[in-house]
Structures are given as structure tokens and as C-alpha cells.
Design a protein around this nucleic acid. Sequence first.
DNA 1: GTGAAAGCGCTAACAG
DNA 2: CTGTTAGCGCTTTCAC
Lengths: 352, 352
Amino acid sequence: MDTGAPGSRASLKHVAERAGVSVKTVSNVVNGYLHVTASTRARVQQAIDELNYRPNLAARQLRQGRSDVIALALPELDLPYFAELARSVIKCAEEKGWTVLIDQTDGLAEREQLVLDGIRGRLIDGLILSPIALGAAELERRRDTTPLVLLGERVFDGPADHVAIDNVAAARAATAHLVDIGRTRIAAIGAQPRPSSETAHLRLRGYQEALAEAGLPARPEWVAEVDQYHRADGAAAMRRLLDVPEPPDAVFCFNDLMALGALREAHNHGIRVPEDLAVVGWDDIEDGRYSTPTLTTISPDKQKIASVAVEFLAARLVSGSEPPHEVTAPFTLAVRESSGGRRDRAPAAASA
Amino acid sequence: MDTGAPGSRASLKHVAERAGVSVKTVSNVVNGYLHVTASTRARVQQAIDELNYRPNLAARQLRQGRSDVIALALPELDLPYFAELARSVIKCAEEKGWTVLIDQTDGLAEREQLVLDGIRGRLIDGLILSPIALGAAELERRRDTTPLVLLGERVFDGPADHVAIDNVAAARAATAHLVDIGRTRIAAIGAQPRPSSETAHLRLRGYQEALAEAGLPARPEWVAEVDQYHRADGAAAMRRLLDVPEPPDAVFCFNDLMALGALREAHNHGIRVPEDLAVVGWDDIEDGRYSTPTLTTISPDKQKIASVAVEFLAARLVSGSEPPHEVTAPFTLAVRESSGGRRDRAPAAASA
DNA sequence: GTGAAAGCGCTAACAG
DNA sequence: CTGTTAGCGCTTTCAC
């Protein structure tokens, strides 16, 4: 049914010629302007269909100065927390008519810096960045003026909008929960040697504060450092903790993935969870609701984080240079089996 | 250190003026052309730095007719299989200098159609689509000429390049494995009522073929239908299978997520895996390597799928209208605990 | 080696 | 209500 359309390379001009009107009129139709006669509109629409016309977004962007595309830069898409977050961001962005393009930084400083420096040129209208390696200093130095929203821990009072989690408070809550259920030898998995890792630092602090508050010992050998926050790192860390002379009876993992690794490793060693060892994670990824045992975890409000980030960006696009906003997203503690929560059915089971 | 740069809105012209050269020269420098005097290059580079110049990609795209952006359209980013796939695609695309923009279709026909119709206008150079709801008919009807690569099951000999998995063969292998370990009452989870669901259809066929081959009964009540391929659907389906008069002693789940849900549900009912019930999944997502028990699964070569898809696109961009290519990506069966594999340590444990 | 000018497809002024 | 025109920032002939 090719009516002579040269591929889909038809431009406004072609459509205009075919419909016997001016480009402006076609533009009006395409953009849904109201003041167009029904008959003209119909003629134009027919020409559009026949030629299979699609607007050239590059030209529109060049003209309008905006692309309706934003970038979301995060460490890894296959870390469930970030996958879930990305899903929400894409959803929210869609409601604004935006398209989301993904940059994977792998948590590398170099790549985060590239993103920050505007590697995307003027292609994107805004940027949402979840920094792992970069700190306040790098952010201060930023020259690119693309609207920026930061995700994650509080990076001081940086020059950018920021959706934060109260890492210290949440870590304290997680640890306090382990204290509450009667554990006394509470370990932590997820400390990081890198000086710039804010997240690990803050969560460790919350952990230590909670121990101090409870008058419980904070043994250095109960704090396991990791390189990354993957399952394998959690498993390896757990293994080391089990070799300590006086092994812990509870462990607070700085994310769910490590907690799942730790769970599995404990299982390999014949250690019962939660009887011998209570485990708490962080992120509330779906895996933890179906694991055996199900995982007690800090549950940050991901939906909220995503929606606030997108709203921040939207606000920036309207009024550029207000002082930076900051929102602290709420969290809850989801108590499940791994810390002795009721051995109730998994959520799916309950829903049918 | 603001040298008067008006934000980052500097254009080639501004840079040219500041450096005392023509725009062409600046363009040459920016694009790394060789025949530029070292001194000129230095002067231009300095002006670029001072003005914090970033090329306007929209203008470049308009001129060159390409954006170096491709779209990846998949059902949901937080389905681990797709998250892992997306990660690989982004990696491969990056090596080609491309940026990837993500479209979430939620597996909805309507949204897949939009993507296919070129909702992105001329913004993208190519499209990789993992269709769930759309079939051959819709693909034949496509008029948009953006290069397209299809992912997933074989959609007949469509008009587009295609990276397929041999669903029937893999499903047969999975089922045959359950036969091999001595199971006789083998169920399947993942059939779908929708007529257009190729994937479910083909996997079901492989399952049935393997049963026939083994001379085993194929009871309809052992085939559980689901709406989606999430953990909750697998758990619910498992629950139904356990209520059947003669419950199965093995179950082949059409993806890992459902298998994990089934695992959890079995656990809730006090059923031992693999002793009472063997479970096989499909996708080889990381979760299944750390679950308890670890999950036997069909492992498609995701890296290969991603790299071939990107290569197909690259080839299309060079020579447009060759006949469609098709590659069938290999798969293996990863035997783990859920089907009686050795109760060895989880992979992470082994690596330290 | 470098410069001048045209034009990619679109929208926004401004006429009519 | 519709047509004409200029120009967004860039690359690309073609001169010099």
C-alpha cells in the first residue's frame, strides 16, 4: 500500500504539498492547534497518513530548545533496587511526556563525572543522577547547567536538587530492631574502604549509634567490608563473619542483595535463620519477599523518590535558578521471617 | 571562574568568535579532524573550555540525519531477565557510541504498537523490541522504516531482523531433564490464555512434546495458566497445582520468577524441594543462583542476544534493505538444587 | 589550513 | 483561519 512515500522521510513540506496547504497549517494540525477547519484538518490528516509522516524530533528540539528527554544515570540496571527505581522514574516521566534515557555508571567516578559534565550535550533537558563514587567536591565544581537532581544519601548542601534518604536514622532503626528481638552480637555487612562512599559511611554510623545506645559492644571484627553490594559480596562477607572467634547472632546488611547472599551462605553452613542468626537488609526489593526465609528490610519509598525527582526536574525546567530543594523520602522497616517475624505466607499467597 | 559564559548555551559561533577563527575550524577541532594547526587547535580548545561549550546534539542530528540514540523497548525493567538484558544492550551499544533510551511497554499490545509505529519520530536511529503481545500480523503491517530488531521467540519470517531462542527445544530439554531424574507427574506453569502469546505457546509445546516422547501423561490439570510472569503468579499457580487430586512431583516454570514464587509457595506448604517436588525455571537470573534451594533453569545466552541485536542494528544502519537476518541464540540447562543437583555451594561461595 | 554560505525540518512571528 | 519567512546550531560543499 505504498502510495509513493519515500520511506518515512516525509517532511512537513511534503505533507503540505500533498494536502495543498502551507507548512504552517500542517504544523498546526500536528500540534493539535484548535483553529483549523475540520475539512482542512481532514485533508492534512489524510496526507499525513498517506505519506506516513512522523515529525522530526531533532528539528523540533533545535527550534524549541528542549527535547523532552531526560537522562537517568545509575550504577547498574540489574541491581534490583535500581531497576525498580528506574521503572518508577520512567513511569513518572512518561506522565510529563518525557522519554528517559539510561546511563549506566557502574558506580565509577570517571563515568559519573562524564555524566555530570554533560556528556549528552544539549540532548537532554535534565539529569537524575544516583552517585556512588562522587562527593560534594565534584558537584560543586560542575559547570554544565543542565538541571540536575541527585538521588541517594545526603551530599551536604550541594548546588543541586536532592532526594535523600535518612541513612543514619534508617540504619539505626534496622539495628535497633535486632536489639529489640534480643540479639547482642550484631554484625554489619557493607562498610567500604573507599573514603568517598557516603552511603556506607552513614549506614555504618547509624549502626554504631544504635549499638552504643543499647550499650552493646561494637567489635571491629563484626564489621565486614565489601567492594560492591552484590549477592556474592554479601555471601563472602558472611563467610568471614562466621569464622570470627565469637560469631554474631545477627547481621545488618546495607542492602538486600548482600543480605540474600548472606542468607544463602548461612544456609550452606547449616546455620538457621532466624533462630541462630537474624538478618536485616535494606531496599525492600521483591526478591526479599519470596526468599526463604523472607527478608526483614528497610523499605525506602521508591515511588516517592522517583516522583519527587521528576517533579524537581519539572520545576527546574520552569524556573531555572531557585535555591536547591531537598526532600527526605520516608522509610519503614518491613519485619519478615529473617528476623523472626511471623512465618506468614508470602505476599502473593495472601493475595489470592 | 565564570569567564562570561552564558550558562552552557555557547554555540560554535561563540567559540569561533572568541578564538578568532571561523565556525568551520571550530567544528573541525570538535570533530577531531586532522588538518588543523596545533596552535589553532590550542586556541580553539581554550575557547571551548572557557565557554564550557557542548555541541548541540539536536543540531548535529538534524544535519547528519542520525542521532546515535537507539530505543530498547521491553515489558518491564524490573523483571530481572529484562534488566540483565538491558544492561548488556546498553553495554554493547556504548561500544558503538550509541545511547540507549528505554521504553516500557508493560507487555501491552497498545504500547508495543505505539513503539512500532515510531512514536519516537526520527529521534532514534534504531529500535530493539521485545514483543509480548504483538504477533506476526502487526509486524507485517508496520510502515515506519526505523531499523528494527526483534527479540524473543520466533515470530515467523517477519520483515525484521530477529534474535530468537529456540523455545520449543529448550522447553523440551527442561522437561526431559525432569523425566531423566525420574519424575512422572510433571506439571507446567506459564501457559497463557491469550492467543497471541507466542512464547507461552511454544514453551508449552516443547513441554508436551517431551512428555509424549517419554510416554508420560499430559494431564490438563497439570498445566497452570497465568496472567503475568511474576513471582506472585508462580506462587498462585503452584497453589492450584497442589490442590489437584494427584499433585505433580515436578514442575517446569516458563520463567525463573514464577519458579521462585512456586518454590516459596511449596515451602509454605511444607513440601520439600527437590525431594517431593523438582522445579525447573527459565532465564537464569541471578536470584536463582542464591535462592534456597538454588534453581535449575534454562539459561539463554543473554550476552549473545544483546550483542547480536546491536550488531544487527549496526548492519542495518549501513545497508538498509537487505533481507531480514535471523539468529538463534544458544541455551544451556543449568542444573542446580531444585531438581536434585549437587547441593554445592552457591557460586559466590565458590569464588572466594 | 581555513573561511563563507547553504540548508537539514521545524516552529514562532507576523501578515493577510 | 491560513500563508510567508526567518532562524535554531550544526556540518558540508566549495572557494581561497
